[in-house]
Design a protein around this nucleic acid. Structure first.
Lengths: 344, 344
DNA sequence: CTGAAAGCGCTTACAG
DNA sequence: CTGAAAGCGCTTACAG
C-alpha cells in the first residue's frame, strides 16, 4: 500500500498536492496532476480510509441497525436478502460501504442495543458514519424515534419516523391491501375477513385500513369477528384462521397481511377440510418465495423488495450530500394473481 | 463526543494515561485509573475508531465479500439471513462489526469486483480490516483463491481455499447426502437417481459423492442416466426431473442436491401425473423455509445455518488473535424426515 | 498553482 | 506509574 507521501516524493511534489489531485483536481496544474495520477495508478494508490475519515470527519460507510441477537431470536425479515442487494448496490454506486453494526451481548460493550439507541448514535460518530439505515423488526418504533431525533441522518424501513435528518421508506401498504380486497370483492365475495399484523405496527395498520377502505368502496363494512390480529408469522395465521372458521358465519375469503400468515391460514383451512380456493379464497401480502411454491399458489400483493434498499440508499445519500430530509418514500405494490383467490 | 484529551484535562492526567487506562489498565495506578474510568463513563467516552485504526493499523471491522450486482443478478444465497445472524452475533461478541464491501459498478472506482480480487485486498488494507469473510455464489473459486493467497486473514464459506491465513467452513455435504440416500435405500428403493448442483462446485460435488457412497454401501451403483446435473435452482430441478422421467426405467426415488431443485422436481413429477411420495420419493438438501411448506412437506438434509456464520466468525477471530489458520470447519448435517420420502 | 504547517484523535516506545 | 513526543496518513486553511 503506497502512501501519499511516497507518491509525492516520486513526483517531486508535496503531499498536499497529491491530496489536491484527488480532492480538488481543478486546483492543480494539469501537468503535475497527470504526473501524480500516473504514478498513483502505477502504485495502485488509494487514500487510507482511516486517515481520511479522521481528517475529514466523514467516512464512506453507512451504518445498518439490524437487531438480531436481542430479545427476539426468532425474528426474521421476510425478504432481507433482496433488500440488502438493493441497498448495497445503490450505496456502492456512491462509493459507500454498509457497516452492519455489532449489537449488545458482548463483553467489551462495543455493541449497543436498541434499548440504548445512544450507543448506536455514538458508534456512528466514532466511525464517522454518513448515516444510519434502520431495519424494523416490528416493534422498534421508540428506539427509531430516538435515532431520528438524534440528528444523525437516518432512514427507517417500514416504520414512520420524524426528525431533523430522518425519513423513511415503506410500501403503499394501504393501497396494496385495498387492491387485494377489491379483487376479492370483484370475484363476488361479500364475507371477507382479514388477518392483520401486530396492531401498532405501521405496515400492519396500513394494510388493515386498506382492507377497510376496500369494503367501504363496496358499500360494506367488516362483520363482527372478521378482523383478527396475528403477528405476521405463520403460526398466528393458523390460529387466526381457526378462530375465523369457528364463527357462526365464517368468511368465504380472507386477506392475510403477510404471506406467512396466509400460509398458516391455508394449513388451518386444509386441516378443517376446506379446499382453497373453492371453499375459501385467500390472498396474502409480500410475495415472498413461498407464495409461488405453496399449493395452491398464493395470490398476493408484491412489494418492490430491492427497490426498498435502493430507495433507502437514495434517501440517505440525499441527506448526506444535500440537506434536509425529503418526505417519506412510498413504493408502489402490485397485486399478483395466482391460484389461491379463485380468479383462475 | 468527548475526546481523550478532554478526559485527560478533567482528570489532570495526560492523554497517554487515558489511553493506557483503556488499553493496558494494569499499568496504571489504581486511583488514577478509577478516576479516569469514572469521568469517561460520565462523558460516555469511547475512543474514536478512525484515530485508533490509523494509529494501531487495526480496525474492529471484518469485511464481507458478497458479490451482488455483478454478472449474476439473479443469484441468491439459500439462507443468507440466518448465516448473517450467526456471523454478526458471533462477531459482535468480540466487538467486531461486519463491513459489507461495495462492489464495482460505481463511478469512483471505490468498489471492487471479483474479477479483480486485488481491489478487495486493497480495501481491507485501506480500512485496516481484520479479515475477510467470503460468501460463495457458486463460481467464485478462482477469485477466492486469490484472496486466500493474498495473506489477509480470510475464511470462505462453502468453497475450499488454501493460503497462509485462509480457511473455510462447509457442511458435511457428503455425509448428509449419504444419509439421505441411505434413508431411501432403507425404504426399499433401488432405483435412486440424483439431481446434482453445478459440477465443480464444492458442495455439489460432495453431495454427489455422498450419493455414490450410499449406493456403494448398498452394493449398488448409479444406473445410466441417473445422475443429472442442475444448478441448484428450481427450474433446473424441473428440467432434470423431466429427463429422469423420460428414461426407459425412471427412478422411484430422487435425491436433489438442493431444496429448490427438489421443489422443481416435485412440480415436474406432479405435472407428469405422479404422486409424491407414492409414485416417487423425493429428498432435498438445505432445509430452507419452503421445504416445510411445500405439499408434501419435503424430507431434506438440514444445514446448521447460523452455525455457518458462527464458525466463520470463530475462524476469523482465531486468525486475528492467534496465528496460522486452523483446518477447515465441517459442520454436521441432519436428515429431517417429512412427507416427500414416503417414510410416514 | 504549490508548499509548509497544523490538526484530526489516538497509541506507543522512550525517559524519568 | 506517568508525561512529552513522535507518528499513523490524510486534508485544509494560510501564505506566497
Amino acid at each position: 500500500m503506497a502512501t501519499g507521501r511516497e507518491i509525492a516524493q516520486l513526483c517531486g511534489v508535496s503531499v498536499a498536492t497529491v491530496s489536491r489531485v484527488f480532492n480538488q483536481p481543478e486546483t492543480v496544474n494539469e501537468d503535475t496532476r497527470e504526473r501524480v495520477l500516473r504514478v498513483a495508478k502505477e502504485l495502485d494508490y488509494r487514500p487510507n480510509e482511516s486517515a481520511r475519515a479522521l481528517s475529514t470527519k466523514q467516512s464512506t460507510m453507512i451504518g445498518l441497525v439490524w437487531d438480531t441477537d436481542h430479545r427476539r431470536p426468532g425474528w426474521r425479515h421476510p425478504y432481507l436478502q433482496d433488500l440488502l442487494i438493493g441497498l448495497k448496490s445503490a450505496l456502492s454506486a456512491h462509493g459507500y460501504h454498509l457497516l452492519m453494526l455489532a449489537t449488545s451481548g458482548d463483553a467489551r460493550e462495543v455493541g449497543a442495543s436498541l434499548a440504548d439507541p445512544v450507543g448506536y448514535v455514538n458508534m456512528t460518530r466514532r466511525h464517522h458514519l454518513g448515516g444510519l439505515v434502520l431495519i424494523d423488526s416490528g416493534s422498534d418504533a421508540e428506539a427509531f424515534e430516538a435515532f431520528a431525533q438524534s440528528g444523525v441522518p437516518c432512514v427507517a424501513l417500514d416504520v414512520a419516523v420524524d426528525g431533523p435528518r430522518a425519513t423513511y421508506v415503506t410500501s403503499d401498504n394501504s393501497g396494496g391491501a385495498r387492491a387485494a380486497v377489491a379483487h376479492l370483492v370483484g370475484l363476488g365475495h361479500s364475507r371477507i375477513a382479514t388477518i392483520t399484523g401486530p396492531p401498532g405496527n405501521q405496515p400492519s395498520d396500513a394494510r388493515l385500513s386498506g382492507y377497510r377502505a376496500a369494503l367501504r368502496d363496496a358499500g360494506a363494512e367488516p362483520r363482527a369477528g372478521y378482523v383478527v390480529a396475528g403477528d405476521f408469522y405463520r403460526a398466528s395465521g393458523t390460529a387466526a384462521m381457526q378462530r375465523l372458521l369457528a364463527l357462526d358465519e365464517p368468511p368465504t375469503a380472507v386477506f392475510a397481511a403477510s404471506d406467512e400468515m396466509a400460509v398458516g391460514a391455508l394449513l388451518a383451512a386444509r386441516a378443517a377440510g376446506l379446499r382453497v380456493p373453492r371453499d375459501l379464497a385467500l390472498v396474502g401480502f409480500d410475495d415472498i418465495e413461498i407464495a409461488s411454491v405453496v399449493d395452491p399458489a398464493l395470490t398476493t400483493v408484491a412489494q418492490d423488495k430491492p427497490g426498498f434498499g435502493v430507495a433507502a440508499a437514495k434517501a440517505i445519500m440525499a441527506m448526506i450530500t444535500g440537506g434536509g430530509p425529503e418526505g417519506p418514500v412510498v413504493l408502489p405494490t402490485q397485486l399478483v394473481v395466482r391460484d389461491s383467490c379463485g380468479a383462475r
